[in-house]
Nucleic acid binder design. Sequence first.
RNA 1: CGGGGCGUGGCGCAGCUGGUAGCGCGCGCGGUUCGGGACUGCGAGGUCGCCCGUUCGAAUCGGGUCGCCCCGACCA
Length: 413
Amino acid sequence: MKISQNFTKTSKTAPADEQSESAKLLLRAGYIYKEMAGVYDYLPLGMRTLENIIQIIREEMNAIGGQELRMTALQPRDVWEASGRWSDDVMDVWFKTKLNAGGELGLGCTHEEPLTRLMKSYISSYKDLPVYAYQFQTKFRNELRAKSGIMRTREFMMKDLYSFSKNREEHDEFYEKCAESYKKIFNRLGIGNDTFRTFASGGAFSKYSDEFQTLTDVGEDIIYLDREKGIAVNEEVYTDEVLKELGLDRNKLEQHKAAEVGNIFTLGYRYSEALDLTYNDEDGNRRKVFMGSYGIGPSRVMGVIAEKLSDEKGLVWPEEIAPYKYYVVGIGTEGTKVANDLHDKAPEQIILDDRDKARIGEKFADADLLGIPYRVVISDKTLADNAVEIKSRTEADTKLLPLEEFTAKLVQK
RNA sequence: CGGGGCGUGGCGCAGCUGGUAGCGCGCGCGGUUCGGGACUGCGAGGUCGCCCGUUCGAAUCGGGUCGCCCCGACCA
């Protein structure tokens, strides 16, 4: 990508109405654009970053047998009435609207009901189970108060997987598998070291659930962490009974603020019963399907990563999720020419800063602000050694890399 | 939804003891510069969120309304 062709611009100042560091940086760097409170557009750079996050999650979900689909945001009323969750008294985050032809519908805030009903068309025998279906989809929640940039919004991207199992044992096995998968995901996303499986309340579904909480001061939850064991307890279930059950010693726990980046729930028969999702077992007995739900919010995760990995100069993206891997600057006639050639060879990996009126300091500042993993400078000086100068976003020193070697890296991927 | 704060060029801000708007960044044109956000000359750009009221006159005073941020409550 050439900077000269990118319509977004960077800014030295952040809008005064943003307080969280991640939102300020994402706005300044031109990754997102604010439409209104809790509603943000993803601009080209932001969208590539979000897509990279999504791709990591997709790969890991596929690895444990997930099958991706895409459901609708528009939700029919009847299926929600069947489960008793249409009423605003039960679900206070609904955005609802009316059809011109008459009748009400809702904008999806979660998808247990419609997917359970959908599965009635395809699940009828024990041979059809288990099923692990998931999607990346825009969710709408009428939050009373949006906050912290893209970390708590009214319209956001969500990965939601739902498991349909024959029984509790089959469900438990997948539940643990998914928990392991989540660990891999957060490791790949660069926040694994500070993300912990956290025992939490089960909400409307069951007594308990598991959350994945990332330590950060902008988080909305309080958790008690046992670092040795690598597990935590959410404040909402921080009782002697729970600690005993988990074998945790109150004196060894650290209190932290944290942001929920993922969660897994055992749903049991809650929805299969309400919507009559059943199957025939080997003996011809009619049985209810045992369900679970597993969420990760890629857009919130993007905010958490921006918050945690950034520094005073700007964003710092892990290689795997950065919108581009190299920020290339050419200096001098020959350097500019070589930089151009490299870009044309790998336009998906390189941001070429081809602005001729911008000075070097401005280009470097932008490279830092955008959080591109490597800054590459090509000048007469480096070309005299037949090399490029490369600097990691996370290190202070530059080093020379033979031009051939750098070119080979570009071809590789 | 309760409490607090705030809406002035694209962004950050000043002006608010009433007299019809100013600065910095950014933007356009010219010149000097050119490996860490340079300097300089000229210039474009604003119904001061919106409505009503007070007044000869409102960005400025009063009321209302919409929006935004923070704290709290809430969070399937």
